[in-house]
Design a protein around this nucleic acid. Structure first.
Lengths: 113, 113
DNA sequence: ATTGTATGCCGTAAAAATACGACATTGGTT
DNA sequence: AACCAATGTCGTATTTTTACGGCATACAAT
């Protein structure tokens, strides 16, 4: 499988971003980080209805894309949003959907298959 | 599993939108529909390196969220973007990320865990 | 009426995502 | 030195996604 490779890198990158934010837990983490500015992993798993290891995994997904950073501070790890990276992905997102939306198709809404 | 229910409907809806566009094939379909204005399913599977049944499934995913419509025209089905629905989701998306981005955290980029 | 074509759906197989407990590691605390 | 606390990793189970071929349906054409 993995036919994913057959598509342009632009679409692949955008898809990876979308996948990263395609789970409520990860969106909740982003939101929580924005509100608290910075926080440790344990705070997040207390806040979310998920186990520590699961939260750790979600944090990893976000970190792999570069959407967040984790700074080690003794025993704890301070997580924070990586705004520059988020901005880059948002720009990519907007570019794509602007090109989509610029085409003003008169949508036939009568029949929905 | 399915801990998804524990999150707010806002986050769930946004996550569903993100999931819908989290595959290069579905992004490619949206792009193709924007370019060709309208087209039939067969054209898409010719254009994409995927089988007809797979494309049909992706089309269904997009249709379930309301991002596209399919109008039956005799033997064929004309697919087109549903701009109003797309706009709704884009608005939701922007609202979320504006609230995220409004918090200007000075990101510590030194250590990356 | 028979044939051909476009599509969707079903079953299935492989892969990826999700979620957790248990364990290991590392850095403070007493 | 011994202990506690916070985190990440590993293994595993379940679910979901991805992808396809084959079948059925519906319409058009001969």
């Amino acid at each position: 499988m993995i036919k994913t490779d057959a598509f342009s890198t632009e679409l692949q990158e955008l898809a990876r971003f979308a996948k990263a934010i395609s789970h409520p837990a990860r969106l909740a983490i982003l939101k929580y980080l924005a509100e608290t500015k910075t926080c440790i992993s344990g705070d997040i798993s207390d806040y979310l209805p998920l186990s520590r290891s699961t939260v750790s995994q979600h944090l990893n997904d976000l970190k792999e894309l570069g959407l967040i950073h984790g700074e080690i501070d003794g025993l704890k790890v301070n997580y924070c949003l990586c705004c520059s990276s988020i901005d880059d992905y948002l720009k990519m997102f907007e570019t794509f959907f602007e090109s989509i939306r610029s085409v003003n198709v008169q949508c036939v809404t009568k029949t929905k298959t």
